[in-house]
Design a protein around this nucleic acid. Structure first.
Lengths: 138, 138
DNA sequence: CAAAAATAGCAACATTGTTGCAAATAATTG
DNA sequence: CAATTATTTGCAACAATGTTGCTATTTTTG
């Protein structure tokens, strides 16, 4: 039950109310969360600054990862256990559903190999698909 | 020489100073531009609102396209001629260079086919690679 | 060139993100 | 377990980014 505490402890983060609530929210949520979702959904009223800082340290520690967006609405989602401090390995595809507006991590869909011309060095690749998710497409 | 006027006319946009200057800037620039780049680089001082609206209508008309980002710094880049009003077909990969910080369209690198599980409907796929560009990687 | 249509600029505001600092909370150590 | 130390929080103030309504100006059209 104190899974949450463990996650924080394992990542060398002090266990505070704010971090517990925000991590809780991620664990309870299917799909990604934007800063504003957290501001509204985290139960109590945390200062916006606290949320920014919490999200930053979660990303740094590899607890969550950032999902890029084309409309200034960056989202965050839980990392699977392959992620560790400073090294994100979430090589899955993201889907933004145009019906329910949720952003989902399609863990089973792996980012394909892309062939770049010689001369480039590629560190990582982000894939974001726009479409309709399983639930909404039925 | 009035290539610019033609582009605007062909897209049924009035030919105004702002639009000409901004389009000029895109034509003169290798790589993508952020709103702030335009605010600084467009020569004269355009109202920020004008720039927002110009970018919106250029996107709508298929003159430029949006490149998603993971750090709230959306960039815009010229579309090739396959794009038309309401239909973007820029299925190329984008590269964000960690050295020169430029965002480039790699027109020769096509977005690969991604296999999604049944049940999803996919409209389009965005691929953004982080790495080092040809120029900086030598 | 005049009338109609479209666009630009301004003002005011909303949202998002950052920084420094003092107070509160959590971890550590004896 | 209490006291010290380290960390984190909330606040305030600010900066940057994005939006909307309205009027004046510019562009287009006939």
């Amino acid at each position: 039950m104190s899974n949450i505490q463990n996650i924080l402890r394992n990542n060398k983060l002090s266990v505070t109310e704010g971090r517990k609530k925000i991590l809780q929210l991620f664990l309870n949520t299917e799909g990604a969360l934007a800063h504003s979702d957290i501001e509204m959904g985290a139960g109590e009223n945390f200062d916006r600054v606290t949320i920014y800082r919490t999200l930053h340290s979660f990303v740094e520690k590899g607890i969550i990862h950032v999902i890029p967006s084309a409309d200034n609405s960056i989202k965050y989602a839980l990392c699977k256990d392959e992620c560790s401090e400073g090294h994100h390995h979430d090589h899955h595809v993201h889907l933004v559903c145009s019906v329910c507006q949720k952003t989902l991590c399609l863990d089973e869909v792996v980012v394909p190999v892309v062939n770049f011309p010689t001369g480039y060095y590629i560190e990582n690749i982000e894939v974001v698909a726009n479409g309709i998710c399983k639930q909404c497409n039925s």
